[in-house]
């Protein structure tokens, strides 16, 4: 199934570019939001799946809120993200963040911010922590903004059953 078949409302796009004009992340993207819409309309899925755009997208929903054709662009981005991960085409580091985040929920029930940060750094940055990040982390610790120890595990059997249905690794 192509993205266009999964998400037929993309055919309503007439390239007014409202999405791109209001997008706070547009300048960081390799394909602009309206270009993603155009490529999906034309069935050029590969171009979209390997693009940085779905990962750079902050899901701020400005595009979908302003789209005159009421296309749920962020839901399309979600569909692209999942497919890119499933097909091993994700080009950016964000999937690792989301995996670590979900792992943290599975393990503790609640997200312990300090553990999340350290695990993410371990997996993506190989402890390449910048001076700025270190300063910020220390300041947050001193201000009591980072809980040092995680609390007890939450969610019990219910969470276990939910995560048993987890779709992709």
């Amino acid at each position: 199934m192509t993205l266009r078949e999964e998400f037929p409302e993309v055919l309503r796009c007439y390239q007014c570019m409202s999405c791109t004009l209001g997008c706070p992340m547009a300048q960081e993207m390799d394909l602009l939001p309206h270009e993603v819409m155009g490529a999906v309309q034309l069935g050029r899925d590969e171009e979209v799946l390997g693009s940085s755009t779905p990962w750079v997208c902050a899901s701020c929903e400005a595009c979908a809120t302003r789209c005159p054709n009421e296309i749920e662009i962020v839901q399309l981005m979600d569909a692209i993200r999942r497919r890119a991960v499933q097909q091993g085409m994700a080009s950016e580091r964000e999937p690792e963040l989301h995996r670590v985040f979900l792992k943290e929920i599975e393990r503790r029930g609640r997200v312990h911010e300090l553990s999340l940060l350290l695990e993410l750094k371990r997996r993506t940055g190989l402890f390449k922590i910048s001076v700025d990040e270190l300063k910020l982390g220390l300041k947050m610790l001193l201000k009591g903004k980072l809980k040092v120890f995680p609390g007890v595990k939450r969610g019990g059997e219910e969470l276990k059953r939910l995560f048993a249905r987890r779709e992709s690794p």
């Binding site: 899901s59 979600d78 993200r81 999942r82 991960v85 964000e94 999937p95 963040l97 989301h98 995996r99 985040f101 979900l102 943290e104 929920i105 029930g109 609640r110 997200v111 939450r154 969610g155 019990g156 969470l159 939910l162 995560f163 249905r165 987890r166 779709e167 992709s168």
Partner: peptide, 20 residues
């Protein structure tokens, strides 16, 4: 015994968890 809502991560990888 509340647990995490899935925040900005669940909906990007797992449609079921993002609701469940």
């Amino acid at each position: 015994d509340w647990s995490c809502c899935g925040a900005s991560s669940a909906h990007q990888l797992d449609p079921f968890l993002s609701v469940a």
